[in-house]
């Protein structure tokens, strides 16, 4: 009976394990291997090993350094702002009332748009002022008597513009997850805190935050990985410009493979990217663990 259970369990698990092995782990391993070899896009097999040559080329490539900085800058803009905004909105719409339901729906609506749709739409909204008319934002600035802004055409403004747009698109999903977390915090804790004379802010710090700490951890980690994966927005809206200020790491990998046709280079960049993602996720986990231990 036990032997039969073992055999059937293997059959149940086998297809999933094979497919995940083939399409997740095997690519990860072959990425590490290709990063140490010369291989052009048209080669079906890895060329001669070249030691750390690809890594040196990536590391010394000013485009890669810029891409790494840009991606980090985007994450630093998006993660704290989007999390704080999502938390504020979640606490706000957690109050009973008809209008909070409406607000919840309104904030959630943009998350149903794909990044492709958002990029296309906001490209039009960000259009600089020109003779044929201007984008929505410059039109609004104009009607308020404020000077027109270059937005995506300015090296200084382009990345903050992409960040603002991404926050607008994504904050509703984070808000809903945090809302589910808020609603699982026991009401008795709030009553006890109120009896102890805790004010609104005190209740938020001492009851709400510890109560949703695991959910908040999840939200921050998901948002960080989403931010580091940045690709569609610069690829479609700016092409990585102006002056390379919005090129992301994923875009660099894509261009290394399909424009420069150098798979070794792309895989070396991928290995570095993987290490960065893993380190960031690991550090965040550890930080949140110790923060939870403190409260």
């Amino acid at each position: 009976m036990i032997a039969r259970e073992r055999f059937i369990a293997m059959l149940f698990v086998l297809p999933a394990v094979l497919l995940i092995g083939l399409f997740v782990f095997w690519p990860a391993v072959s990425m590490a291997r290709t990063s140490l070899h010369q291989q052009r896009l048209t080669d079906t097999h890895a060329g001669p090993p070249c030691g750390g040559e690809n890594f040196r080329a990536v590391w010394e490539d000013p485009d890669f350094r810029a891409a790494a900085w840009n991606t980090a800058y985007f994450a630093v803009l998006v993660v704290p702002l989007q999390t704080a905004l999502a938390l504020a909105l979640a606490v706000w719409v957690n109050a009973p009332g008809r209008w909070t339901r409406g607000l919840r729906l309104a904030v959630f609506l943009p998350t149903t748009l794909s990044l492709t749709v958002v990029a296309v739409l906001w490209d039009l909204l960000y259009e600089p002022a020109q003779a044929s008319g201007s984008g929505l934002f410059n039109g609004l600035l104009g009607s308020l008597g404020l000077p027109a802004q270059p937005f995506l055409t300015s090296p200084a403004q382009a990345m903050p513009c992409l960040a603002a747009m991404s926050i607008w698109q994504g904050v509703g999903f984070q808000m809903m997850i945090l809302l589910a977390g808020l609603q699982s915090v026991s009401g008795e804790l709030y009553e006890a805190a109120a009896l102890d004379g805790a004010r609104r802010w005190g209740r938020f710090i001492h009851v709400t935050l510890p109560g949703i700490a695991p959910t908040l951890t999840l939200v921050v980690m998901i948002t960080t990985i989403f931010a580091l994966k940045l690709f569609v927005q610069p690829y479609l809206m700016t092409g990585g410009g102006p002056q390379g200020t919005t090129r992301s790491v994923v875009q660099y990998m894509y261009e290394a493979a399909f424009s420069r046709r150098d798979l070794g280079l792309a895989c070396a960049a991928g290995v570095l990217f993987f290490i960065a993602v893993a380190v960031v996720a690991g550090v965040q986990r550890r930080l949140f663990r110790s923060a939870e231990a403190l409260t």
């Binding site: 698990v13 399409f23 095997w26 894509y254 993987f274």
Partner: peptide
Amino acid sequence: LFLLLVVSIILPLEVIVIPLFMTVA
């Protein structure tokens, strides 16, 4: 096996997109 599966959750498509393309090719 279960631990390996959980590890693969944190490997987003974007990280392995180039070698996955090579695998499919």
